[in-house]
Write a protein that binds this DNA or RNA. Sequence first.
DNA 1: CAATTATATGAACTATTATTCATATAAACG
DNA 2: CGTTTATATGAATAATAGTTCATATAATTG
Lengths: 107, 107
Amino acid sequence: MPIIEDQARFLRCIGEPTRLQILKLLAESERCVGVLTRLLNKEQSLISHHLRALKECNIVTERQEGQKVYYKLTDARLAGLIIDCEALMNELLLCKCKELNYERKGN
Amino acid sequence: MPIIEDQARFLRCIGEPTRLQILKLLAESERCVGVLTRLLNKEQSLISHHLRALKECNIVTERQEGQKVYYKLTDARLAGLIIDCEALMNELLLCKCKELNYERKGN
DNA sequence: CAATTATATGAACTATTATTCATATAAACG
DNA sequence: CGTTTATATGAATAATAGTTCATATAATTG
């Protein structure tokens, strides 16, 4: 079975700005859709779509309480992974490609 | 500057099956384009395109030796990150949701 | 029950990304 | 030199993913 495809899908699922923001908020605490929508100032349906994508990759789980649906990280270590990734990226100055391109063009 | 966008870009760059395979090979040792092409059994131009994407995110660096160009990971901790991610994903049974999609694709 | 609130969904559209193909460059070698 | 080998590149196309809009569902409240 293509494990590599699963891993790639997992990384791509995290690698979308809005979803990454959602995950960082959920790393702090469980949150419902409406709160996420207001915090991120995006359309509610967009947040729902992204939450579904995250759920389909088992990155988040949901819990309904009355009308509201609360989402949280499936595992706290996901927060650690994101932090590690961010730290490594910053430390190594990764993804500075735009700037490199500017320099190259300027030469 | 939108750090979150950089981080998302970084994750997406890693989150592509062929690039992930390339990275796993480079985690073992430095390799030139031709060897990567043969090992992965893909078109040479495709491998070059992916290597460029990785280079633009500072994930790999190149070194020319004669006609050949050798690529390696910018930092060994990248290998660790990939391993951690894979381990966590497997342990949590993440991304097992897409089995139906595999059937659909039939690859 | 009707109205309101919270969330989800699907279709259409748009944007981004991956892949192929043809070709370019550049080193090595006879 | 001309030829072969190794790699890169750009344009065109194909595939995938993100966003919006309209609407659906379902819980809550008066």
